[in-house]
Amino acid sequence: MRALVLSVAVLMSVVASAQTAQGMARPPPPGQPTGPINTRPGPPTPIPGYNDSGSWYDDYDIPEGFRRRGTLVVIEREEQIDRMARMEVLLAQATREGNNRRGREALSKLREEMNAMRHDLNKAPDLRSFRQRQSPRPQPPPPPPQPQVYPISEDQLQSLIRAVNKESFGDGKLRVLEAAASSQHFLVPQVTKILQRFSFGEDKLDAVRVLWPRVLDRENSFQLYQLFSFQNEKDQLKQIIGR
């Protein structure tokens, strides 16, 4: 009985390297350190958006006085508590039954529980990887809202037409349009009203060149052709507006 209790105690103290039924020592499971337990691992890869500084595990919420001796992993607390409770029951049964059949069965089940615990701990996700998966990925910022563009108001249009009428020559009228087009947008019917203030086809074409980049309803460009009398002017208009 004394030898049985001693073997069970040894079995419980070396979970990570439990002995087989034949008493042969198993090698440490994959991923477990084989050197001194106080060897400090290299710094982990920074986690974008969560741990950009690449700091150590010690920056996480570790209880005071806890000494880390290996890799921190994520396990379910309740599951491990239930498992250890079952192991305590099996240990008590093996101690009580001794070296009979029931005692040996209890030891066999105890070994299975310990191997399963070792397997689960070995497969448990690393704390850094788990937190990286749990952390929400930063979403790209929404695109800036497009500025609202409106055509020139009717009052401003009439003020512009009056300014154009005050100029006696085409060059002066174009200078007025260039100044207005730098800060205003237009509709095709508004462009039509402006072009009617020019006497010559060449001046009208120059006016279209100034205003067309600021026109909002280009699908109505066909309305401009009626302002030109000669085919060569209409051909030039087509080149300007691309329709």
Score class of each variant (00 low, 15 high):
46 P>C: 07
128 R>H: 11
50 Y>Q: 08
88 E>Y: 02
139 Q>R: 07
173 K>A: 03
170 G>E: 13
53 S>E: 14
97 E>G: 01
37 I>Q: 02
160 L>D: 07
158 Q>N: 14
25 A>R: 13
99 N>E: 10
227 L>R: 00
206 D>N: 15
219 E>C: 05
129 S>H: 07
175 R>W: 00
28 P>N: 00
112 E>L: 11
130 F>G: 04
111 R>S: 12
102 R>G: 02
53 S>W: 12
236 Q>R: 15
84 M>A: 11
108 S>L: 13
231 Q>D: 13
186 F>D: 13
105 E>Q: 14
134 Q>A: 04
46 P>I: 09
139 Q>H: 04
86 R>S: 12
9 A>E: 13
19 Q>N: 08
167 E>S: 05
109 K>W: 12
116 A>R: 11
219 E>D: 14
89 V>F: 01
206 D>R: 15
239 Q>W: 02
234 K>H: 06
49 G>S: 14
242 G>K: 03
91 L>K: 14
133 R>A: 15
54 G>V: 05
12 M>T: 09
39 T>E: 08
110 L>V: 10
187 L>G: 08
105 E>A: 09
112 E>V: 12
165 N>T: 05
126 D>I: 14
225 Y>V: 09
37 I>P: 00
169 F>T: 09
197 R>M: 13
85 A>V: 06
222 F>C: 01
232 N>A: 08
74 V>K: 02
41 P>W: 11
